[in-house]
Design a protein around this nucleic acid. Structure first.
Lengths: 114, 114
DNA sequence: ACGGTATATAACTTTCAAGTAATATTCGAA
DNA sequence: TTCGAATATTACTTGAAAGTTATATACCGT
């Protein structure tokens, strides 16, 4: 059977690929925070912050805990884990590829010279 | 001194966060390929393919090798490595955070009940 | 019940990247 | 030295996500 390669979810990558959201994620490393706290720290309007949090929430990067009229956002490990296993699936391949490229270049060189 | 946390390059994430480019990367796992081969396999126009390859090239995800009028594109390990070390920097934090959240919830509960 | 606070949502504008079409460049071969 | 193939680049159109403003909802304390 063919080797399983984890296929990475583009939605997760899209969510990560935005400076403000990345900043939010870095903030949430420390501890769960409310929208107001996040909004204040990264100097974004409250609606804007909520919008980014929704993107992060929709793809499972964060989860929310309601307490009174506050919402605590915290990181969820799952997306990070799948990203890690995807990235890891490239280990070993690069080096092998280097050999292959080496071979390829030699082939091409011969092709050119004979 | 404060603990060093690798700060992830948004440009790299942006480059990864697009389905066609992700497909190109998956293709290049196997071996270096020319623009024509890539273009054919993922059914994209040649200019479109070149454009995506430029994005990947600009952020160092691929490198190009010219041979005659062909360009061989291959993956470069560096961006994958830095992505991996960024992702790894989240390991251990999640679990600790869970404890913290647990504490936080208890605090909040007490706050509410007393 | 009322007022203030925290957050979400909807409607809108703006910005930027994806996608397309046409043209330029470079190379090998006849 | 011309021709076709491979690729890059430029100019353009389009669509989606970022950012903004205004409003709605829910909760607590009084």
């Amino acid at each position: 059977m063919p080797v399983e390669t984890p296929n990475m979810d583009v939605t997760t990558l899209k969510a990560l690929a935005e400076p403000n959201r990345l900043a939010i994620i870095e903030l949430l490393r420390e501890s769960p925070l409310t929208v107001g706290e996040i909004s204040h720290q990264i100097k974004l309007s409250q609606p804007h912050t909520s919008k980014h949090l929704k993107v992060l929430s929709d793809c499972g990067i964060v989860k929310v805990l309601a307490k009174a009229n506050r919402r605590y956002y915290k990181l969820r490990p799952e997306p990070f884990q799948s990203l890690e296993s995807w990235i890891k699936s490239f280990q070993g391949i690069m080096e092998e590829r280097f050999d292959n490229l080496d071979r390829l270049l030699k082939e091409l060189k011969n092709e050119g010279e004979f």
